[in-house]
Design a protein around this nucleic acid. Structure first.
Lengths: 333, 333
DNA sequence: CTGAAAGCGCTTACAG
DNA sequence: CTGAAAGCGCTTACAG
């Protein structure tokens, strides 16, 4: 079935069929019904290829705002973004990426404004969760996709990690390892960061079932290796946890402290930085739970482009990537 | 850059540019060089959308031979196949699926011959590894993709599980759980099935590093729940393993025997059947390692269609899906 | 060996 | 409100 055939069957022209197909109005009601009936009866499905070929005449300009570039985690997100943009090359995508070093709300707002001046049609952003950013994003007249970290603003979709679930899976790992009970220490960046506390929440929910496991109050390392080293060092002088769960960054410093103490302590981490990779392969880290950063970037662009070019909304506003358990012999194909 | 522009710059016609682009010959050498030079200089990239639109005029008929349908694992493979076929609907794909119940080489050969009569352009098959099938497949003049189970025949690609690695990851799990040492029993279907022995091999390679872990000789249950029940029952009367690794089917029967014995034994399994799911969620199974059956079906069709429609060979002949560790709280988004 | 023309299925002005 | 025509970027006969 083609538009031409539909038009013939309905005794009209392709242009009119197209108007009905896209609800552009300006069609006599009876004619409209007739066309709809023919479409219905013939099970007409528009050819996506032809449609995309036409659509590719329009350019869709997508702006991306990322921070902390240089960090391998975010590099993977960026790779996913570029991968999907390359896939849409023929489809008329145009990408402008603003990379910000560190976490500056001021710089993030400047980047958004620059993109606005470049007339972007949609925005993908890893937002910093402060009131000012929320205000700026809410006043935007274009579709927004929040990436990796969510924030309360009107948006087309959030693509990122289900942190509570990530914490639960780490709790499952702790239960496996400490099947005869034991004490757990938790190290996170900062209790004001939603993702970090959600991980702790999930961890406790999962481990709560195991009576023989005792969990100590989380330690904060500000995602900094030096602080992490110092705090873990202190911790190990005072107590003797059987397992440490590193639910954020600062893993390198923390592990250094563990290794120096000489005792055998099980370690569970998150993500897959070079440090984690090295210690996982050497057996120092028992397991790590990753969140598919590449897929996050990939999917964010995919969703936004489909909204812009084809008005196809995502099924769900929340798009969580998989929390994957990697062990010593896990491969990254 | 378009073919038209290339033609103008090279002072020739679109038809001739097209001939050069596809190496169809019949172009004067000097003209050919000139066209290639222009293509090079302008960084011309053919528009995939337009190309696919044209290609969709041709129909590519793909035959699929699957066995053991009804088994949820294979159902997921089939879902992946249908998913990708639907994606290629506009691209001119035509699919004929032959489902065989059980493992009959005879029926598999009949299915292949029926597909041959239907003039398929390519074949996706989960081959039964016997000489006769190898002979039939080798004599086929069309591209073949082996799915889930590999077999020594000329082929475009194999898509399936890296069984050795799957076993290694299960070994990693055993090491986590038995961090203070212990005894492991292994249950597989049959030592003549490559995937099963490869899993054992991987498991031993991984566990071999841990001196405190003793691994017993694998038990064979013929992938049958009743045999599995009986054999595990016997095993538990004679010995007291701390962990049982079920590296194939017959999990339901085996676990029944474990539960009846009343002792606490850690269980690690493969795949994600309803039985596994239920026992994983209830904490009876500690962890399972899955092989992405949906992705296997999806990817097999994807690879074969790209070969047929666009002559795009896969990068690698072996396409392994991820061996994923699922724990109690793992989600299937 | 080469080019002019037609066509894939759709959408977009434009004239009425 | 409607239809005839042009065009997206590519490939395919076909005539020479």
């Amino acid at each position: 079935m083609t538009v031409k055939e539909i038009a013939e069957l309905a005794g009209t022209s392709r242009g009119t069929v197209d108007r009905v197909l896209h609800g552009r109005g300006n069609v006599r009601p009876e004619l409209r019904s007739k066309i709809l009936k023919v479409i219905e009866e013939t099970h007409y499905k528009p050819n996506q290829l032809a449609r995309a070929l036409i659509n590719s005449r329009k350019k869709f300009h997508i702006g991306v705002v990322l921070h902390s570039v240089g960090n391998p985690f975010f590099e993977d997100v960026l790779k996913g973004i570029r991968y999907r943009a390359a896939k849409f090359e023929s489809h008329g995508i145009e990408l402008t990426v603003k990379e910000i070093k560190g976490f500056s709300a001021r710089e993030q707002i400047d980047a958004i404004n620059e993109l606005k001046n470049e007339q972007i049609d949609g925005l993908v952003i890893m937002p910093i969760d402060v009131a000012e950013i929320r205000r700026v994003l809410s006043s935007l007249a274009i579709p927004v996709v929040t990436l990796n970290t969510d924030i309360e603003v009107p948006k087309v979709a959030f693509v990122g990690c289900d942190y509570v679930n990530s914490g639960m899976i780490c709790g499952d790992l702790a239960k496996l390892i400490l099947c005869n009970g034991g004490t757990v220490a938790i190290v996170i960046g900062n209790a004001t960061i939603a993702g970090h506390t959600e991980r702790v929440k999930g961890f406790l929910a999962s481990v709560g079932e195991a009576e023989a496991i005792r969990v100590m109050t989380p330690i904060e390392n500000e995602d900094d290796d030096d602080i992490s080293y110092r705090k873990v060092k202190e911790l190990l002088q005072e107590t003797a946890p059987d397992l440490i769960y590193f639910g954020a960054a600062g893993i390198e410093g923390g592990i250094r402290a563990v290794l120096e103490c000489g005792r055998r302590i099980h370690i569970v981490t998150v993500d897959y930085t070079d440090t984690v990779k090295r210690y996982l392969k050497s057996g120092v880290i028992a397991a790590t739970v990753t969140q598919q950063p590449f897929v996050q970037g990939d999917e964010a662009i995919n969703i936004l482009f489909n909204v812009l070019a084809d008005d196809r909304q995502p099924r769900d506003i929340n798009n969580y990537t998989r929390n994957q358990v990697l062990l010593r012999n896990s491969k990254e194909y």
